[in-house]
Protein backbone atom coordinates (compact mmCIF):
# COMPACT_ATOMS: atom_id res chain seq x y z
CA UNK A 1 0.00 0.00 0.00
CA UNK A 2 1.17 3.49 -0.80
CA UNK A 3 0.31 6.51 1.33
CA UNK A 4 -1.89 8.99 -0.48
CA UNK A 5 0.69 11.75 0.06
CA UNK A 6 3.08 9.81 -2.15
CA UNK A 7 0.56 9.00 -4.87
CA UNK A 8 1.11 11.02 -8.03
CA UNK A 9 -0.94 11.50 -11.17
CA UNK A 10 -0.04 8.84 -13.74
CA UNK A 11 0.32 6.03 -11.22
CA UNK A 12 -2.02 3.10 -11.73
CA UNK A 13 -4.21 1.40 -9.14
CA UNK A 14 -3.40 -2.29 -8.86
CA UNK A 15 -6.44 -2.93 -6.67
CA UNK A 16 -9.71 -1.01 -6.41
CA UNK A 17 -9.80 1.78 -3.84
CA UNK A 18 -12.57 0.77 -1.46
CA UNK A 19 -14.27 2.84 1.26
CA UNK A 20 -13.76 0.58 4.25
CA UNK A 21 -16.92 1.13 6.25
CA UNK A 22 -19.41 1.11 3.37
CA UNK A 23 -17.53 -1.33 1.14
CA UNK A 24 -18.16 0.97 -1.77
CA UNK A 25 -15.67 0.89 -4.65
CA UNK A 26 -14.45 4.46 -5.18
CA UNK A 27 -11.96 3.86 -8.00
CA UNK A 28 -11.51 0.69 -10.05
CA UNK A 29 -8.31 -1.30 -10.40
CA UNK A 30 -6.30 -0.25 -13.45
CA UNK A 31 -7.30 3.41 -13.17
CA UNK A 32 -4.61 5.93 -14.09
CA UNK A 33 -4.69 8.37 -11.21
CA UNK A 34 -5.45 12.01 -11.95
CA UNK A 35 -5.22 15.00 -9.64
CA UNK A 36 -8.96 14.96 -9.02
CA UNK A 37 -8.83 11.28 -7.99
CA UNK A 38 -6.43 12.13 -5.19
CA UNK A 39 -8.93 14.74 -3.94
CA UNK A 40 -11.76 12.22 -4.26
CA UNK A 41 -9.86 9.64 -2.24
CA UNK A 42 -9.06 12.21 0.43
CA UNK A 43 -12.69 13.22 0.61
CA UNK A 44 -13.64 9.60 1.26
CA UNK A 45 -11.05 9.40 4.00
CA UNK A 46 -8.94 6.86 2.12
CA UNK A 47 -5.31 7.31 3.16
CA UNK A 48 -3.54 4.61 1.17
CA UNK A 49 -4.03 2.67 -2.07
CA UNK A 50 -2.38 -0.19 -3.96
CA UNK A 51 -0.24 1.01 -6.85
CA UNK A 52 0.81 -1.04 -9.85
CA UNK A 53 4.51 -1.74 -10.20
CA UNK A 54 4.98 -2.91 -6.63
CA UNK A 55 6.57 -0.40 -4.34
CA UNK A 56 7.42 2.25 -6.94
CA UNK A 57 5.15 4.64 -5.14
CA UNK A 58 7.12 4.25 -1.98
CA UNK A 59 10.01 6.06 -3.63
CA UNK A 60 8.02 8.91 -5.04
CA UNK A 61 8.88 11.98 -3.07
CA UNK A 62 6.27 14.36 -1.81
CA UNK A 63 6.95 18.05 -1.97
CA UNK A 64 6.33 21.11 -4.03
CA UNK A 65 4.69 20.89 -7.37
CA UNK A 66 6.66 22.77 -9.99
CA UNK A 67 4.76 24.16 -12.95
CA UNK A 68 5.99 22.36 -16.01
CA UNK A 69 5.05 25.27 -18.26
CA UNK A 70 8.08 27.18 -16.96
CA UNK A 71 10.14 28.22 -20.02
CA UNK A 72 13.30 26.69 -18.53
CA UNK A 73 11.49 23.35 -18.62
CA UNK A 74 9.64 23.62 -21.92
CA UNK A 75 12.68 25.01 -23.78
CA UNK A 76 15.11 22.29 -22.73
CA UNK A 77 12.59 19.48 -23.09
CA UNK A 78 11.40 20.81 -26.44
CA UNK A 79 14.99 20.76 -27.65
CA UNK A 80 15.69 17.30 -26.22
CA UNK A 81 12.55 15.84 -27.78
CA UNK A 82 12.90 17.55 -31.14
CA UNK A 83 13.32 14.25 -33.01
CA UNK A 84 10.57 12.52 -31.06
CA UNK A 85 7.11 12.03 -32.52
CA UNK A 86 4.95 13.42 -29.73
CA UNK A 87 1.79 12.12 -31.39
CA UNK A 88 2.98 8.62 -30.45
CA UNK A 89 1.38 7.80 -27.09
CA UNK A 90 4.61 6.42 -25.60
CA UNK A 91 6.61 9.50 -26.56
CA UNK A 92 3.85 11.84 -25.35
CA UNK A 93 3.88 10.05 -21.98
CA UNK A 94 7.68 10.06 -21.73
CA UNK A 95 7.72 13.75 -22.65
CA UNK A 96 5.23 14.49 -19.87
CA UNK A 97 7.22 12.47 -17.32
CA UNK A 98 10.53 13.98 -18.40
CA UNK A 99 9.08 17.50 -18.05
CA UNK A 100 7.87 16.72 -14.54
CA UNK A 101 11.17 15.19 -13.55
CA UNK A 102 13.19 18.01 -15.10
CA UNK A 103 11.12 20.56 -13.22
CA UNK A 104 11.95 18.69 -10.00
CA UNK A 105 15.59 18.58 -11.00
CA UNK A 106 15.68 22.35 -11.51
CA UNK A 107 13.98 22.90 -8.17
CA UNK A 108 16.45 20.63 -6.36
CA UNK A 109 19.34 22.33 -8.08
CA UNK A 110 18.18 25.80 -7.12
CA UNK A 111 17.57 24.62 -3.54
CA UNK A 112 21.10 23.23 -3.56
CA UNK A 113 22.63 26.50 -4.73
CA UNK A 114 20.79 28.45 -2.01
CA UNK A 115 22.67 26.59 0.67
Amino acid sequence: MVKLDLVKPGMVLSKPAVHASSGREILAAGRVIEDKDIRTLKSWGIHEVSIEGGDAGRYASPGNVIPIETPAVTDRMGQAFRFADLTHPLMAELHRLAQQRYAEYLLQRSAGSDR
Binding site: G10, V12, G53, F81, E93, Y105
Partner: peptide, 30 residues
Protein backbone atom coordinates in the same frame (compact mmCIF):
# COMPACT_ATOMS: atom_id res chain seq x y z
CA UNK B 1 17.93 14.16 -19.91
CA UNK B 2 15.31 14.88 -17.27
CA UNK B 3 18.11 14.67 -14.69
CA UNK B 4 20.08 17.36 -16.45
CA UNK B 5 21.89 15.10 -18.94
CA UNK B 6 22.97 16.40 -22.35
CA UNK B 7 21.88 15.34 -25.79
CA UNK B 8 18.50 14.45 -27.13
CA UNK B 9 15.99 11.64 -27.14
CA UNK B 10 16.49 9.31 -30.11
CA UNK B 11 13.59 8.68 -32.46
CA UNK B 12 11.40 5.73 -31.55
CA UNK B 13 10.45 3.01 -33.98
CA UNK B 14 6.77 2.91 -33.17
CA UNK B 15 6.46 -0.79 -34.09
CA UNK B 16 9.02 -1.57 -31.40
CA UNK B 17 6.67 -0.37 -28.68
CA UNK B 18 3.76 -2.34 -30.17
CA UNK B 19 5.87 -5.48 -30.22
CA UNK B 20 6.34 -5.34 -26.47
CA UNK B 21 2.57 -5.62 -25.97
CA UNK B 22 2.66 -3.53 -22.83
CA UNK B 23 -0.01 -1.05 -21.69
CA UNK B 24 0.92 2.62 -21.61
CA UNK B 25 -0.12 2.71 -17.95
CA UNK B 26 3.13 0.98 -16.90
CA UNK B 27 5.29 3.86 -18.09
CA UNK B 28 4.72 6.32 -15.24
CA UNK B 29 5.46 3.79 -12.48
CA UNK B 30 8.33 2.37 -14.55
Amino acid sequence: ISEGGHGFVPALYSEAWDQLELPLSIIAPL
